[in-house]
Structure formats: structure tokens, C-alpha cells
Design a protein around this nucleic acid. Structure first.
Length: 150
DNA sequence: GCCAACGTTGGC
DNA sequence: GCCAACGTTGGC
């Protein structure tokens, strides 16, 4: 099983919102590196759910990949904010996956706390300066370390 | 609201 | 293919 971290702005879509709907299509990603991570996901992969651009940025829950990558329908929807007129329907540029709620953490593991464990976490894209990717790979060791903080 | 990081765009 | 301009992200 592989592991990933998904960022979401809680004002847009929070862990509570994911809990309510159960399964959510994860689309609208318009960055090639993040897209490639989506495409590498397999059904059953573990996901850390991270709240960004908020008062307490940090890991708030665990989710799973419910469906591997498929063409993101929003790229072909002229009414969508994520519409991409340059995407070719015969070779879609953007992908989505389905994300299933697993559980909320007992407490928020805030970014600040993760930084204090930078040594144990090793090379971790989330802790790098200027990190702007919304989908990041997480190693098995990092997964274990982060959840052990809970 | 500020600012650093950095991806994308478009002129040349 | 280079590079300046611009837009977006996200922590603070």
C-alpha cells in the first residue's frame, strides 16, 4: 500500500464534509506534478487529510483511495471553474480519484508540531519551503511517525 | 495583507 | 530555448 497527503482548504471542503458525504471525487487538480501523483494512486492507498490556508494548518484525518485515477470530468465542463479548453477528450490532460472517509484524528497534528519532528520525518515535501503541491507522496515511515503523534 | 516560492505563459 | 511578467499557493 502506498501513502499520500491531500491538502484541502477547510472553508472549501473539510474533513467533516468528507465524513458527511463518505466518498468524494477529488478533481480540479491543475498541476502536473500533483496530477502525476493522482495517477500513481491505487485503490486502497492510505491518505492523510490535511487542512491548509486556515488558522490551524495540519493533518486532521485519514482517508482511502476508493477509485484509481480516471479523467477529471470538470476539465470538459465549460461551466466549471476547472474547465480546460486545451484538454483533448481523446487524451484527457487532468485526472481525478475518488476519496473515501476513514476516520478523523483524535486531535489535529499541526504543521508546527510536524516541523519539530523534521529529523524523524526526513525528506518530506510538506516541510520544504515553498511547498505548494496539493497532492504529496508520504513514505510508510512518515505515515507511521505522523499517526504515532496522535 | 504580506511575501516567498515557483509554475505557467508568451514574446523574442 | 530563454527569460521576464504574471498568477497562485499557503504560512504567517
Amino acid at each position: 500500500m502506498q501513502h499520500w497527503l491531500l491538502k484541502s482548504e477547510p472553508d472549501e471542503f473539510s474533513i467533516d464534509a468528507l465524513q458527511r458525504v463518505g466518498v468524494e471525487p477529488w478533481g480540479g487538480v491543475r498541476n502536473y506534478q500533483a496530477r502525476n501523483h493522482l495517477r500513481a494512486m491505487r485503490k486502497g492507498d492510505g491518505l492523510l487529510f490535511y487542512h491548509s490556508s486556515c488558522a490551524l494548518p495540519g493533518v486532521v484525518g485519514v482517508a482511502k483511495v476508493a477509485r484509481a485515477a480516471y479523467p477529471d470530468p470538470t476539465q470538459f465542463d465549460p461551466d466549471s471553474d476547472y474547465h480546460d479548453p486545451k484538454s483533448n477528450p481523446d487524451d484527457p490532460r487532468w485526472s481525478a480519484v475518488d476519496v473515501a472517509f476513514a476516520r478523523k484524528l483524535a486531535r489535529v497534528i499541526v504543521l508546527e508540531e510536524l516541523r519539530t519532528h523534521a529529523g524523524k520525518l526526513g525528506e518530506f515535501a510538506l516541510l520544504r519551503r515553498g511547498n505548494r503541491l496539493s497532492v504529496l507522496p508520504v513514505s510508510a515511515a512518515q505515515w507511521k511517525t505522523i499517526l504515532a503523534l496522535e
